[in-house]
Design a protein around this nucleic acid. Structure first.
Lengths: 196, 196
DNA sequence: TACCTTCCTTAGCGAACAGTACAAAAAAGG
DNA sequence: CCTTTTTTGTACTGTTCGCTAAGGAAGGTA
């Protein structure tokens, strides 16, 4: 098996390099020329291995969700109470968004904030991802209401939107140079709004 | 005076149209071709009246700050207490960011989130604007600490970063389709974190 | 009317964009 | 060895990018 000439570059490593570029400059802010340069390959190798720019970006987003972005779903699932879950999400976001090992903030939040009309399909796909994260927030609150850990009248949607707002704001703050300590303080203040 | 052929388009109206495009699609997401089409003029008229794309954007940002974006500074100055000032900023942001008369969110927050490396000067200029807004937040808190309306140990910087985070998050939520009611609930929850 | 200044329209500039045709090169199968 | 299959590097496609040269058009001034 494995007919033909084998590829001479590490596909996973190239994908990681592409991730760093899209993370830092966004979808349209990253050109194929910059991608091939950073990935250490020529354009035909990129198109052969990943399809086109859009497909490469989709694969970047997918692997991002299973690595850098997985802490959110993990925290929502592992913590026993919604309060502890959201506190952990914010605490870990403060660390992750300012980790000097990679670009600041969250790729899903920031990579398609400004796109020209011709690429609104990509922006819509990312918006849909953020909306599903918001649903995850709401469902976690609803689970605690159902379990009696939160009052029956709790507005799960409002609480979910609030913490999504804080997380998205933290991402932008990190990209504007906020420190991990700054964001930890934000996380602490945001948890003061948790219903009594 | 006023020698030569007078221009046949309304410069202020053209600037408003440019504002709407930059507001919706961002700096790089808006092409000169789209600008001229929406402004109803040809490229040479745009360059003659405004300089180049960057100068047009700068003028857009300046007029934006004196109109749509002025509510923040006004609220910080007019309200007697910092608490009332921040509550008003969040309340008015909820309305302004979802006003159907113009694109959602805040132009200064969202127009240069993703730019290619060649335009990082524009992104830096906008970052500096956001940083000065953050300074305004901090100074408003410090004023209340000095006046005895807030405890002497209040962390003005942390509080300023927190409310800047909420405002930026609200802008992104609005661009993702959040309603005015959603953002009003966010504003209410965010004020629950105000120091006792 | 004649002139002067400025604006508008047409047409196009070089550069960068995403994407590809083509043939040499390198492996496995026969 | 020879064919087949896939990757490789070179060079290139058509399109869009921001921007502008050139000349006619339209006003005020004399």
């Amino acid at each position: 098996m494995a007919r033909g000439r084998p590829r001479t570059f590490d596909r996973a490593a190239a994908l990681r390099q592409a991730t760093m570029l899209f993370w830092q400059y966004g979808y349209e802010g990253t050109s194929v020329a910059e991608l091939t340069k950073r990935m250490g390959i020529n354009a035909p190798s990129l198109y052969s291995a990943f399809g086109d720019k859009r497909a490469l970006f989709d694969e970047v987003v997918e692997t991002y969700g299973r690595s850098f972005g997985s802490f959110v779903a993990v925290a929502l699932e592992e913590e026993t109470t919604a309060r502890e879950a959201f506190a952990r999400v914010l605490r870990e976001a403060a660390a992750a968004y300012t980790d000097p090992e990679h670009p600041a903030g969250c790729l899903v939040i920031s990579a398609t904030t400004n796109v020209s009309p011709k690429d609104d399909e990509v922006a819509d796909a990312m918006r849909e991802l953020r909306r599903s994260n918001l649903d995850g927030f709401r469902e976690r609150v609803e689970a605690d209401v159902a379990a009696g850990r939160l009052p029956a009248g709790t507005d799960a949607h409002a609480l979910a939107v609030y913490y999504a707002t804080v997380v998205q704001g933290m991402s932008q703050q990190a990209r504007d140079g906020a420190s991990a300590a700054d964001l930890e303080a934000v996380a602490g203040l945001a948890m003061a709004s948790w219903p009594a």
